[in-house]
Amino acid sequence: QRITLKDYAMRFGQTKTAKDLGVYQSAINKAIHAGRKIFLTINADGSVYAEEVKDGEVKPFPS
């Protein structure tokens, strides 16, 4: 399943989102408010992988 960072954070909370991605909650808040195009893939085992689309390139998040 693929979902935006904002939607994932709204569904699970910023604290869990940060923990799942290995970053601080403040980084999640800042990324959402900056309007960054970050998409999360939720794997069947429950693990989460995030990618950011920037300038036409897709890069892992966090980099």
Rank of each mutant, 00 (worst) to 15 (best):
K19W: 09
L5K: 00
F61R: 02
A31R: 01
T15A: 15
K6Q: 14
K54V: 15
T17M: 03
M10N: 14
K6Y: 12
E57Q: 13
V58R: 08
I32A: 02
A44P: 15
M10R: 13
P62M: 05
S47K: 09
M10C: 10
Q1N: 13
T41V: 15
K6P: 05
I3P: 04
L40G: 00
I38Y: 02
F39Y: 13
A18H: 02
Y49D: 08
D20V: 11
F61S: 02
D55I: 05
K59G: 11
T4Q: 07
F61H: 02
E52V: 04
T4V: 04
K16Y: 02
S63D: 13
K54Q: 15
G56T: 07
Y49R: 12
E57D: 11
S47I: 08
S63L: 11
D55S: 08
T4D: 06
V53M: 13
H33P: 02
A18K: 02
H33M: 14
E52Q: 04
D45M: 05
D55L: 08
G13P: 01
T15G: 13
K30R: 13
N29W: 15
H33C: 10
V53I: 14
G13T: 03
D20T: 06
I42H: 04
A44M: 11
Y24A: 15
K16R: 08
Y24E: 15
V23W: 06
H33L: 15
E52R: 01
K16G: 03
R36G: 04
F12T: 02
Q25P: 14
T41K: 06
I38V: 08
E57C: 11
E52N: 01
K30I: 10
T4A: 12
Q14H: 13
N43F: 11
A31Q: 02
Y8E: 00
K30A: 15
A27P: 02
L21S: 02
Y8A: 03
T4W: 09
P62H: 04
D7W: 05
F61P: 03
K16M: 04
A31M: 11
A34V: 09
G22Y: 04
K59Y: 15
T17P: 02
K30P: 04
I28A: 01
G13L: 03
